[in-house]
Design a protein around this nucleic acid. Sequence first.
DNA 1: AATAAACACAAACAAATGTTTGTTTAGGCT
DNA 2: AGCCTAAACAAACATTTGTTTGTGTTTATT
Lengths: 218, 218
Amino acid sequence: MPPKTAPNPASTATPPATGTVRLVKKRRPQQRQLILDEAARLFKERGFGSSSMRDLGARVGLDAASMYNHIKSKDEILEIICFQVSDTYIAQLTEVEQMEATYLEKITELLRRHVRLMTKDGAAVSVANNEWKALTEPRLTEFKQARKRYEKGFAALIEQGIAAGELQAVNVSVALFTLLSAVRWVELWYRPGRNLSAADLEADLLTMLLDGLKKPTA
Amino acid sequence: MPPKTAPNPASTATPPATGTVRLVKKRRPQQRQLILDEAARLFKERGFGSSSMRDLGARVGLDAASMYNHIKSKDEILEIICFQVSDTYIAQLTEVEQMEATYLEKITELLRRHVRLMTKDGAAVSVANNEWKALTEPRLTEFKQARKRYEKGFAALIEQGIAAGELQAVNVSVALFTLLSAVRWVELWYRPGRNLSAADLEADLLTMLLDGLKKPTA
DNA sequence: AATAAACACAAACAAATGTTTGTTTAGGCT
DNA sequence: AGCCTAAACAAACATTTGTTTGTGTTTATT
């Protein structure tokens, strides 16, 4: 005899396309991604340690136990989110490094992509930036190395930009972290459908960072 | 009969001043502050949700239960840390607002104090910035309001600075959050005794933010 | 229609959580 | 010396934690 609440045919969270409308797709390959997406949002809101699998299950519309058909562990979820983001960052750096352009242009382009990833995948980026400390040990070190790789590459662009006379001779570390941090408020602040468009945001942000806030004394 | 590990006369973490050297001070009034300081460090490292009272107790050199003689709850610890920081920020804003100076000077001074608080109380500032979401409800709203008050005040300085012709006419929100975020890497990066002094850091940071990174096209 | 795989749930698990209780010890006071 | 209170610990508490197991249901494929 079935229990009082009827078992969930295809998760109450998914559209009520009851069988016939199903496309040629496999089974429900979107369930895993749904879990990951919702986890990113939850972890961003509450932090990894303060988020329980039951909380997550409730959001996904699944019993906590059911999610283990799609993911291996809570830790694995965090790993996937963090490395998906860091891999993207590294890829962007590598691409920009190989561009034919001035250092100032390269830096601008890297920042631009940085911001774009944030406006597109805000929750995941936020988790990768703030919750990576909760990674468990083999992966924790890997993540730190990826981070370092990105920072070194970015710092090299700044250093060369200064050497080439394109940039002011500030301390390279200060410049690096100022740029990287300055860009991070986007993840806290940006919401699609604000009165400021993503494009305007990019423009103003780059103006501030590269041209400075103070009016040039004409 | 005492248990195998002798009970802790004045906490093994405190210096072994065994009785006679005690000053005229009350009893052990520093235990509470020790707990709060260590909590700030722990919460910064591991996050509030991933830090247990037993972890904290181990660091302080106290049984978890013993700490309840000094604090009311784990939540209270977070509250104290967060509001001590936000109160300081608000106080600094109020002081700077009342200074006789140009808007650019006021902004510079506010940033300077901001950075100084970070280099002095890094752990607490970090917790207030990153773990405040874990505050429970009456205080959570209060904290958000304090935050908003600070942001509004800061934004007003920028707005007036632009109106007075001292600053470039960028979007005020973008400028505000860029400045506030740019300053936050200090909490992640600064450690006393690095090759970069706090003073040099301040100088380079302000140069970058106010004068920009790009070399003025002479 | 039958079969096998995918998947959802209920129930349970051990371990870890924040906190309370009861008791003992330590140190300053008269 | 003797008291009183602050403060430490041990033991236990009720939950909540992440995860496993067993069982049933759904779905794609034959």
